[in-house]
Amino acid sequence: MGIEIRDVHKAFGSKEVLRGFSAEAHDGETLVILGGSGSGKSVTLKHIVGLLAPDRGEVWVDGLRVDELDREGLFELRRNVGYVFQFAALFDSMTVAENVGMGLKRLTGVSKEDRMRRVEECLERVDMVGYGERLPAELSGGQKKRVGIARAIATEPRYILYDEPTTGLDPMTRAVIDQLINRMKAELGVTGIVITHDMESAFRVADRFAMIHDGKQQFQGSPDEIRSSADPMVRAFIEGRPELIEEAE
């Protein structure tokens, strides 16, 4: 049933971050959201799991209107959504393995052995085998990021939100993570939203693109459409050439 963000407005005090942003991730597809730093990408993602509530507009996930769910409804929804935080947000009082196992612990009917097996499996997927007993403080930024991804996929959720999953990783690891994102989609039918600044990664994982600018949707379309877009804002962004915007003005 996918994820749909409809005309969402969100301000913090007098700062209007989202001013009617819309985007859509179809069932079983990966949507990549592009946008400048501070444009509201992370804020958008937080609306999808109800960490933030829109001032105006609607957020739909799995056929449910998230911004009108009560507490119980939200928790029910969140069991089906994995969230990769931009800065990992690992629980720093717990080991890596405990972090990854947290979501599973919350599910009923998962034995301790199953949980530990699953944790190992997820650590393997992000190439972090052998780090289970470490504390987050003992990891590098990129390693934390990968543990954050392992934690998000551990419960095999049907929806996964990736906030800059490959930022700060080397090209090899980046490719591994991109493959992982595609595998989650292919094997488990995950509907995903990926925020990234890395165009190479973006084209590797995207079924669709949406671009946010000025709090609104600047573009939405397929990879082919974004490649052939004539919009100078879009071109400037994907080619990394800010001068295109000035030329257009």
């Binding site: 937080k46 799991v49 960490l51 507490r71 928790f75 029910e76 969140r78 069991r79 959504v81 994995g82 969230y83 935080f85 800065f87 947000a89 690992l90 629980f91 720093d92 947290m102 979501g103 919350r106 934690r151």
Partner: peptide
């Protein structure tokens, strides 16, 4: 550090 947000997304009140 968004650990409280992370708790919420993992359905821990």
């Amino acid at each position: 550090t968004e650990q409280i947000d992370a708790l919420e997304t993992m359905a821990y009140p």
